[in-house]
Design a protein around this nucleic acid. Sequence first.
DNA 1: AACGTGCGCAACCGCTAGTCG
DNA 2: TCGACTAGCGGTTGCGCACGT
Length: 262
Amino acid sequence: MGRLPKHDKMGMKKGPWTPEEDLKLSTFILQNNTHGSWSTLPSKAGLQRCGKSCRLRWINYLRPDIKRGDFSLQEEQSIIQLHALLGNRWSTIASQLPKRTDNEIKNYWNTHLKKKLTKMGIDPVTHMPNHQQSKYFTNLCHVVQWESARLQAEARLSNPNCATKAPPPPPRCLDVLKVWVEANPGVEISNAMFNGFLASNDQPQNSTGNHRDDWVKGTMKNSHKIEEHTYPDTNYFIEEGDDLFSCWNVLEDGHLNCWDCL
DNA sequence: AACGTGCGCAACCGCTAGTCG
DNA sequence: TCGACTAGCGGTTGCGCACGT
């Protein structure tokens, strides 16, 4: 993996890092409790690398607080949802996924998630279904719901007068609002918009949705985390099991219909 | 076994924003 | 205000490996 060692015009080494170089870099930073100035670090640490290369190696590989290995289903979902909201702002997305680096998330998106969404009939750029007849469409109802909420939030931002008319977004929305605000400094959040972002579990929007939620919770009382995945004012909700997600909707006669499992 | 091909990911490159004198 | 310098970000590259033929 990596590249063959090369040197640039200044005689700085390029290419894959050796275990000895890793050791030198880690030891220097840990002993000093700081990397200090990246541009002066290489000479101080006895490395023939440019500061930029040292910084990247530390941040993406050597830092003790990074998690490596497969992404969990929850992490995958977070990436998809945050990408729908933020686009290719990998560092912002990474800031919401503890112990993951932007480079790792970017690679995972480009090599796994993009293909996965495409296969499921979802455009990975717009996060919209390519065609509603896709046999995978029903599997992704939560993704589509999410995108719908995002568009509603954007509409509310551009036209505050519509804020109270828009239906409430999916769960975990306050977390998302927080991310959105961090990613869009300077944009003011009106009270109406904030209320619109509140999860209905905290502040039920209307009696119909509340009644339905109660009914769903009562019916599915053996399900775990059901509240987290119930989409208010819609017919859809997600049941999270130990290692799979089931997509359900409530039929007009009150029966539950399982669409599919993820 | 040999070869070709595609994939995964570490590392690089170029650009931008922030800071400081 | 301007230029130099630095840090950080996102896009791209290229090598090693796995897998298919």
